[in-house]
Each structure stands twice: as structure tokens, then as C-alpha cells.
Computed example of a mutant assay.
Amino acid sequence: MIQIIAVLCSLSSPAECHEQTVTTSDFGDISMTSCLMGAPQLAEWMKEHPGQRLAGWKCVIGTPSKGI
């Protein structure tokens, strides 16, 4: 399983940032290459969350973490 974990910052409070799992390969066609290049799933997710700024992302292989 591949997870896309985004680092998101609030537009109203730019210093407030957090990590959030955007999607996993269970829910879409995600390869490690597409994840590293900025998967379309990440762009789609950002359209649905306009109050946040994408500060970065990482691709993680493995089971989703409950702490994120």
C-alpha cells in the first residue's frame, strides 16, 4: 500500500501546519512514481480543501498510521 501524506498549513494561520493522509493506494491507482511526482489525487484533494496550503507531501509504503 502507498499513502500520500500531505503537510498542510492553514491559510488563516500559516504557522499552523499538520500532516494528513490524503489518500492510499487502496482508494486509487497510485504508484510510487506518480506519488513522488505529485499524484493527481493530491491536486483533487486540495481543490476540496481551499482553506489550506500544501507545504509538501511524502509517499509512504505500508499500513496507514492511526496517528496521522
Rank of each mutant, 00 (worst) to 15 (best):
P64A: 02
V60G: 01
G62Y: 04
V7Q: 12
M37H: 12
D26L: 10
E48M: 05
S65A: 04
G62F: 07
I61Q: 12
I2Q: 01
I68D: 12
E19T: 12
L11K: 15
T21A: 13
S34F: 01
P64K: 03
A55M: 13
M46R: 11
S13E: 11
H18W: 14
T33C: 05
I68Y: 08
V7D: 11
A6L: 01
G38F: 02
S12T: 12
I5Y: 00
M37N: 15
E19P: 01
T23V: 15
G38A: 06
S31F: 03
V7W: 08
E16A: 10
H49M: 12
C35V: 04
H18R: 14
P50H: 08
T63I: 11
D29N: 14
P50D: 04
T21D: 06
W57I: 03
V60K: 01
L36C: 08
S13D: 11
K58E: 09
T21K: 11
P64L: 04
Q41V: 07
A15H: 06
I4G: 00
G38Y: 06
C17I: 04
F27S: 15
I68C: 10
S13N: 10
P64D: 03
T21M: 15
K58S: 13
E19A: 11
G38V: 09
R53G: 05
G56Q: 04
L36V: 06
C59Y: 03
S34N: 01
F27V: 07
G67F: 13
E48A: 14
Q3H: 05
G67C: 07
H18T: 10
L11M: 10
P64V: 02
A55F: 09
G62E: 03
Q20Y: 07
P50A: 03
I61S: 12
A43V: 07
D26A: 08
A43P: 03
I30A: 01
V22T: 03
P40A: 11
L36A: 13
A55T: 13
M37A: 15
V22N: 02
P64S: 02
I30K: 00
E48H: 07
G67P: 04
T63V: 15
G51A: 10
W57Q: 01
Q52S: 04
P64Q: 03
S12L: 11
I5D: 00
L54Q: 01
A6I: 01
M37W: 12
C9G: 15
K58R: 15
L42G: 03
Q20I: 05
G28A: 09
G67S: 15
C35W: 02
G28N: 05
A39P: 02
D29I: 07
Q20T: 06
V60M: 05
S34Q: 01
G28H: 00
A43F: 08
T23F: 10
I5M: 00
G62H: 02
G51M: 10
C35S: 06
Q3M: 09
I4Y: 00
D26N: 11
